[in-house]
Every structure is written in structure tokens, then in C-alpha cells.
Computed example of a mutant assay.
Amino acid sequence: MLDFLLEPLSFGFIRNSMVMIVLLGVLCSITGSFLIVQRMVFFGEVIAHAVLPGLAIAFYVGIDLFIGAFISGMLSSLIIAWIQSQSRVKVDVAMSLVFSGFLALGILLISVLQSRIDLHSFLFGDILGITVNDLWRTFFITISVLIFVKLFYPHLLFYTFNPLGAQAIGLPVQWINLGLVSVTTLAIIASMQAVGVLLVVSLLVGPAITAYLLVKELHQMIILGAILGGISGILGIYISYYLNAPSGAAIVLVVTVLFLFAFLFSPKEGVLTRPQFFSKPNRLIRHLVKIKK
């Protein structure tokens, strides 16, 4: 059993990937918790796709891809806010428009600029290919986000649950929102390297929503989500190593399984642990009995 656990750790890239996924577990838990409470999960999907034009331009110009992705992601969020504030268009419609527009622009730029971006890595991630520089960058991003949340947690909490009330008492809601958008963009860009754009929202939301079913307070949700995210990532890497499977898909699969366990067996929120589940037949069973008769 000990050899089973230690064998993957003999490889440096496996150790790097495990450190990275623990950092991402903390980072995604923080941002994902705020997105879930604000009912803005689709915003994460928009940012994940909106970074493609920035990647294409950064690759063509020869600058750091991370910078291009961040600028593109922030620009998309500002456009969404501008459309919402200057028209009757609802935020979900604005996000859908920006989502498709930025994705199409990214694909066009890749073709026109003849960019050699690895679309497979962009779509599915490559956590086993991270470098030490990637680790340090993610570490500093995670520490910065933790400091930001620690310093402004009361304001963030109030704004998250009552944005109109926060504005009424004079809190700088625009700056708070910009801070949350920046944090979300950084978390998504860092996570894309691990699981890719197609799976990034699962890593962003999965551990946090699992924690949501198990605890009541937002700070508890963040802490438990970080733990679950780290555990999911490490288990996913082990599965990837021994089954020779894609690491990003394995990580997200573990995240999904943990959510299903919480969904079914959570002490207070679980479907199978509710008293009424056993005290009386559910509607589906009654309906089937009527059909049979």
C-alpha cells in the first residue's frame, strides 16, 4: 500500500502537479463560493472562453500568455457590465452574447494570425506539464487572493448577500465588484492550465457546491471547499497515473463523485437522508402504482 502511494511521488512533475492542484483547490474554493452565492456561475464559463482572443494576441506579439488572457478576461467582464448598465438587457443575456462573441473572435484571430496555440491543451489542460515558474505564479496569486478576502471579508460578505444594501450604506460596490471579477479571472486562468477551458467551471464550482451542501456559513464553505478541492485533485492525479487517463478529466470526475455523495448522503441536505424520503412514498412511486392499476 505504501509503495502504491509513494511510487507516483518519485516523479518531479507529479509532485509539482499535486502542489499546483492544492493551490488551485484553495483559489477555486474562494472564488467559486462567491460565484455560487451570487448565482453567477455562468460568469465563470464566460471568462473561461473569453480569454482565447487574449491568448492568440499574446502569442502573436510574444508576451506572456497569462497577461493576454487576464486582459481579455477583464475586458469581457467590463463589456458585460457596460451593456447591463447602458440598456435594458439582462446580465445573463449580456454574458451569453459576450461568451459567443469573444470565442468567435479568438478562433478568428488564431486563424488570421496563424497562431500555434495548442488548442488541445487549451480545451483539456495539462497539469502534468506545469513548470516551477507556473507554481510560483499560482502561489503568489493564491496568497494575494487570500489577503484580499481576509482584509475585506466583512464588506465582501455584505455585498455578496445584499448588494443594494451595501450601496445604500456607502460601500464602494463598484470597486468590490471589480475585485471579485479580478479574483475570478485569475482563478480561472490559473485553473485552465490544470483542466482546460471545457472543465474549468467544474473545478471552480464543484468543491464549493459540495461544501455548500455540508455547511451553513460562507467561511466554512470556503475552507471545506478548499480541502475537498485539494483531495479531489490529488485523487484525480493518482487515478490519472495508474489508469493512464487524462489528468484533467480524472480530477473533475472525482469532484463530481464527491458532489454526488454529498447530494445523496449529506446529513441535512442529502436526498437519501431526509426523514420524509422513508416516511412516505415519493410522487414518482405513487404515480407508477396508479399507472399499474
Rank of each mutant, 00 (worst) to 15 (best):
T273L: 14
A194H: 12
G32Y: 03
I239C: 09
D134Q: 11
S247A: 14
L75Y: 05
K150G: 03
G25D: 05
V173H: 11
N162V: 01
V181Y: 14
F124K: 13
S191F: 05
A262Y: 15
G270A: 01
L113A: 00
S266L: 07
A69L: 08
N133G: 13
G12K: 14
L123A: 02
I67Q: 12
D3M: 02
L203W: 14
V93G: 04
A168F: 08
I147T: 05
D118T: 07
N16S: 06
K280V: 04
D3P: 07
P207H: 05
L288F: 06
V51Q: 14
S77I: 00
S111L: 05
L135E: 08
I80V: 13
E7M: 06
W136C: 02
A69V: 02
I36Y: 10
L258S: 06
E269W: 07
L235A: 09
L253W: 10
R274F: 00
G106S: 07
I291P: 11
G62C: 09
L178N: 12
Q193E: 14
L157C: 01
A48Q: 11
N162L: 01
A94V: 03
L218T: 04
L119D: 02
S182V: 01
I176C: 04
L213N: 15
A187I: 03
V271K: 12
L272R: 11
G54M: 04
F124A: 00
P207G: 01
K268M: 02
H120T: 10
L6F: 13
F158C: 03
V89R: 11
V289W: 01
L218R: 12
M1D: 08
D118C: 04
L151R: 15
Q193G: 06
P246L: 00
S279W: 09
L157K: 15
I127E: 07
N177T: 00
L214T: 06
P8E: 04
K90N: 09
N282K: 10
F158T: 14
I169C: 06
Q86N: 14
F124C: 02
L119F: 02
N162D: 11
S202E: 04
G54P: 15
A190D: 11
I83F: 08
V215W: 07
L156C: 06
